[in-house]
Design a binder for these strands. Structure first.
Lengths: 345, 345
DNA sequence: GTTTTTTGTTTAATCGATTAAACATACATT
DNA sequence: AATGTATGTTTAATCGATTAAACAAAAAAC
């Protein structure tokens, strides 16, 4: 990068004034700082001539504000998070902020790394999709008074701002929908995770059975590890099908679980929904394209992302405002993969 | 962010030495700067105690290096770019760099915006997936001597570093594969774009026909606008099928085109591959999950992304090294959607 | 016992901007 | 004429680190 950048000083020299005046003029403070009109015009002209671009590092160092938001998600290559990232990017840009994105791979270590790196880079605040066992990280941010908003997941026992989904309700709706369609043996494949939103999905599912007088059977619930989903899903599905109470419908607690599960279901030659009805969380092109369009829980992504940014920016302006805690409602999009059983009619 | 950050000065005061010593010690320059051993130990200890984290803004302002890479892609919510972004993120992190991502939506304006914003933020270099009509932006970067590498797309007439795909060969292979399978009327749906990689895909497709003595028919080639793909693809496919030489096979030049096209093909009730064989660029879960797995052109994403980062970092170290221009080969992954016509056997 | 060298540490400029405070005129008021 | 008030501009400190150069004291050389 030669052709050295023009600085305030360069303009000042050319205009034969001090850098202070240049700074005032270029920041629109001519009035307050009562800069002479002719000089102001001259400065503006020279700035344009030299195509002056302020150095944000210097600005930030001085002001303590970088106009940068750190976004921590599980994995940018996962469409769900990529979607969110895009929404956050756009909304942040509208407000003059730039976003740095980091993928935690659902691990607490990487999440710590990212928080540290981002803090060193002086981000003004964070939007975080929390991984398991990151409570201490959240506490750390709270203690240090770093502005942040949790997105999609939150810790009910820690008082923070957050925007997430009413997972209980969403799962409850998914289960009830299947029951109404005449399905009796309904399974759930979720992640083995203590994260609240995952536990809520499980709880919602179980409540939907309970409320419909369907006794829950342990073999209907499979919790798979993040790093072993392929194998565990296979075993899990085999198990669910082999059981004395073989499932006739299956709920997937996330998009990735569904994709992996469906591949296996395809390979088994099972027909959806006749052999097995399907409902999944998260939307995706793959669901539309499937031979039998997949019923899914539509999360209000746009709203989730936008609101998170809004709350954060609000917080950056007024650090001591009240905590905003928002649970948004999902909407069940019924498609063919969970159509009512023929026998019902 | 109260609990004010600890700075070099804080450590210096506590250790009763000047900031210079602290800086030397914490940067591992004890030896060169012959700092007293006891003092060094003391400084390190205090730094740890106070959990000192250097301020990168200050560091960067001084050094002129931000250890930040600007990545400009078309859209982070597109799985293809999300994938690349993840690879770039990881590779950059390995080398101590942070990535800022921006989505251009294939427009020259947004691309300019991003370049300007990122330059103001003093990124050390760029990795760019160029949009149409951004040649002047590339020239600008060249003139200003800003290090950058083009990824996935390049301008043959501008001498830059780049890493992209041999699109001609990939498209030629796709076409030849279909011809070998007994398909005679092969269509291509591409973007209406002067971008080289797109033109190369078209050229490769046409050459594959030509080389196999299949006379090309204009109605087999549809070029659709970025912002109107839904409608144009519908019309295009209708047109191709209505033609006197109705297509029996279709190549999609990108992932997004394929997804959109397949939805429409589904809605028409066409059976793949019996009614219409399919080959597409770009891989995706949706292709695996489709009732008839889609044949696709496998791009070496990992290599593309990694190499781009490597070249850029190399360039950052040695700004005047020779331009690296790399064309990688794709691999056709034959699946059921393009299985040889029954009549062939 | 000087002079030189080595060792250890501080000083101060610098990166590029912002901004309170000081300074210098011109103009108005009494 | 003396004082007060606008108006316009500069000075210099500051943000947090880096680093060449200056300095001081101890050790080695002659």
């Amino acid at each position: 990068m030669n052709k050295k950048k023009v600085s305030l000083k360069d303009i000042a020299e050319k205009a034969q004034v001090s850098t202070a005046l240049v700074s005032y003029v270029l920041n629109g403070k001519e009035k307050e700082s009562r800069v002479g009109h002719e000089i102001a015009v001259k400065i503006k002209q020279i700035a344009k001539e030299l195509n002056y671009q302020p150095n944000y590092l210097a600005k930030s160092l001085r002001s303590g504000k970088t106009q940068t938001i750190g976004l921590i998600i599980a994995d940018i290559s996962n469409p769900f998070f990529a979607n969110i990232a895009r929404i956050v990017e756009d909304e942040a840009k509208k407000n003059g902020y730039t976003v740095i994105i980091g993928s935690s791979d659902e691990t607490a270590e990487k999440s710590w790394d990212l928080i540290t790196v981002f803090l060193n880079r002086q981000v003004d605040g964070f939007i975080i999709v929390s991984s398991e066992n990151t409570e201490e990280q959240i506490q750390y941010l709270l203690e240090r008074n770093v502005p942040f908003v949790l997105l999609d997941r939150h810790f009910p026992e820690i008082p923070t701002d957050f925007v997430s989904l009413n997972s209980f309700k969403a799962a409850y709706d998914a289960g009830s929908h299947l029951v109404r369609g005449g399905y009796k043996n309904i399974g759930l494949i979720a992640y083995k995770s203590q994260l609240f939103h995952m536990q809520e999905r499980i709880r919602g599912y179980r409540f939907s059975l309970e409320d419909n007088q369907i006794p829950f059977r342990p073999e209907w619930l499979k919790e798979v590890g993040f790093n072993t989903i392929e194998e565990e899903i296979k075993v899990g599905i085999d198990d669910m099908l082999a059981s004395g109470f073989a499932v006739d419908a299956l709920i997937f607690a996330t998009y990735r679980l569904a994709i992996t599960g469906l591949k296996y279901i395809n390979s088994l030659g099972l027909k959806v929904p006749d052999d097995l009805a399907i409902v999944s969380f998260g939307q995706a092109e793959a669901f539309d394209l499937y031979y039998c369009p997949i019923t899914y829980v539509l999360q209000p992504m746009e709203e989730l992302g936008k609101t998170a940014v809004e709350i954060l920016i609000q917080k950056l302006k007024k650090p001591d405002s009240n905590k905003k805690q928002i649970l948004m409602e999902a909407k069940l999009m019924a498609r063919n993969s969970s159509r009512p059983k023929a026998s019902v009619f």
